[in-house]
Amino acid sequence: MKTWLSVCALTLGIVSLAQANPAAHPAARTPTQAELRNALAAMPNGDALRGKRLGQQLMCASCHGETGVAISRNWSSLAGQTAAYTYKSLQDYQQRGRFENQRARLMQVAVTGMSQQDMADVAVYYASLKPAPSSAPRLSSAAHARAEQLARHGDPARLITACASCHGAAGQGNKLTPALAGQTVEAFMRTMHDYRAGHRITDANQGMRQFAQRMTLAEINDLAIYYARMGKP
């Protein structure tokens, strides 16, 4: 433990450069179930064609890719993401309720001035695209079996609910619960680590925070690859 601490101290370098804990960002907060329901109910009908144009004007494509397949490891793939989830994420960034890491600042900048309609259009556009399964190296069959077990059945002994029970058997997501199939390994891992560390707090019932904390790093890694490759023949 002591060794670990000293490594941390070294890595952080001088104090004035140390990052503030992003979770301590004043505006970041966990939404209530009612707020989520209301936000979803208020979502306008999106226009995918307009969303595509906006995606170019607003530079979404520069990181998330023209077809929603991320071309930067810093950002998630959006192709095939549920419209509700993308819409809500954009809203969270605009209202500053989501600030899991420094990158969130760029999203805050990118969504400045977007209307509810703009957000719905962009969200519907990305939802209309086909996810591209990752070419990440295949898991060993044992690791694959373990990941599949967690994904489909969870681990009752550790109170980990099956991922599929909310995210769908094919990782397709369901409204405000995001799709996982075809998500990049990096984005999946980053999200889980942010939940695990308590930097991301947008999970209404704190479920994701708890599941992430109960999983081992190896399990998270394997699940990332499992979902990234999902749908790949």
Binding site: G13, I14, L17, Q57, L58, M59, Q102, R105, L106, V109, A110, T112
Partner: peptide, 23 residues
């Protein structure tokens, strides 16, 4: 968007640049 991002990157740069020089 490019103009606003330019300002966000300016603030980020103050940190990354200082680290590259002094840490």
């Amino acid at each position: 968007t490019q103009i606003r991002l330019g300002a966000a990157y300016q603030q980020a740069w103050l940190k990354t640049f200082t680290e590259d020089c002094f840490a």
